[in-house]
Design a protein around this nucleic acid. Sequence first.
DNA 1: CGAGGACTACCCACAAGTGGGTAGACGGGC
DNA 2: GCCCGTCTACCCACTTGTGGGTAGTCCTCG
Lengths: 213, 213
Amino acid sequence: MTRDRISVLLIDNHPVVLDGLKAVLETFDHIEVVGTASLAQVGLEIARQRRPQVALMDINMPKLSGIDAIELFRRELPDTRIVMLSMHDSREYISSSIMHGAVGYILKDVSTDEVVCAIETVASGGTYFSSGVRDILMADEARMEANPLTPRERHILGLIVTGRSNREIAEELGITPATAETHRKNLKRKLGIATTAGLIRYALDHGIATRAV
Amino acid sequence: MTRDRISVLLIDNHPVVLDGLKAVLETFDHIEVVGTASLAQVGLEIARQRRPQVALMDINMPKLSGIDAIELFRRELPDTRIVMLSMHDSREYISSSIMHGAVGYILKDVSTDEVVCAIETVASGGTYFSSGVRDILMADEARMEANPLTPRERHILGLIVTGRSNREIAEELGITPATAETHRKNLKRKLGIATTAGLIRYALDHGIATRAV
DNA sequence: CGAGGACTACCCACAAGTGGGTAGACGGGC
DNA sequence: GCCCGTCTACCCACTTGTGGGTAGTCCTCG
């Protein structure tokens, strides 16, 4: 290692997570928590002064979302390596974080050992994604070739885009609402998208539906 | 009038509406119901043979939606004047119907007199929109200049596009979920859009949000 | 003929959105 | 000084979606 201790900045708007993480990390001699913040803006300010090697940042924060904050960090502090900390394992959050420049993404349900491992890995130049995240990333690439949407699913996706409820979709297709629900669930699972809004953006992006009303 | 009786085709997948409307219309000497159908495709088939002057069609039907059916009618039977019959007064349905070529749009809660009036009007070449619909159409044009979205609303619309729930929006903006809910309601009211899906399409259409994840 | 995918349908408990409202605080403009 | 728009917040009853499942029927492909 270039320095004996890895400097880490913690940003999380949940005091419990913030303090807990700080306490745990401080039991490791090779890690130094140089600051904590509950808001991204404050974290950025601290980072300007302390120039941490690693920033561990929550993805969901008031005022300034973690995703948006990644960009600000990258612009002002390109050497600080950003690891996102999230409770959500949705494909959108993960790929969005990576695209914005995060080099790590760990779920909040991982062990503290794994957090330490992530810090070490990204500090030495690597990338770290917790196991659940890796699965999602790999699945994301393999899934679409292995599991293309069925015609029925594309049809239903189109109806979802127009704002139809499960009941309305069911009426329109002559099936039960429960089945429409299943198709909706399968769509989300196949695409790794957690929200209906995400499904709509996906459909518009991939020409499965058009915005024409 | 060119013909003594106006030939009308009824298409609605609700038997009650279909039969009720037929019975009522047949009490008028100058109106002749030349056919009824509970599916758009069947209605189209009947229309091919009977060439009705007016087609009264439900907007929500299984298999083939009324909106899509308008196009088929326009293509094959350009002389048949289409009046949409709907329970929904959402801006999207109405403007979509008009754009596809309907010359009338009446809500199902209107009086039968108004239905007769609509048939007479479109048969003689005019357009007919029931009072509630007119309000919405006029409002639609006037509203956006009179009532532009506030910055706060645009911000919240952007968050809705990313699939945030009211609770998540509230956390992100430091307000209560109830307030986020109010903003969401106001957005729908201002834009005359009934569904969250519609809000998303609107936002993407108007550059208030981008699909970039 | 057996496997697997597609489509269908239902179960549960819980979370969230819907669509009506009402209402207070603040600030700018007439 | 008052009006109006904005932003905030809450009420209710109701519907809908969520995220786990399981499981049956068809049809096709090897």
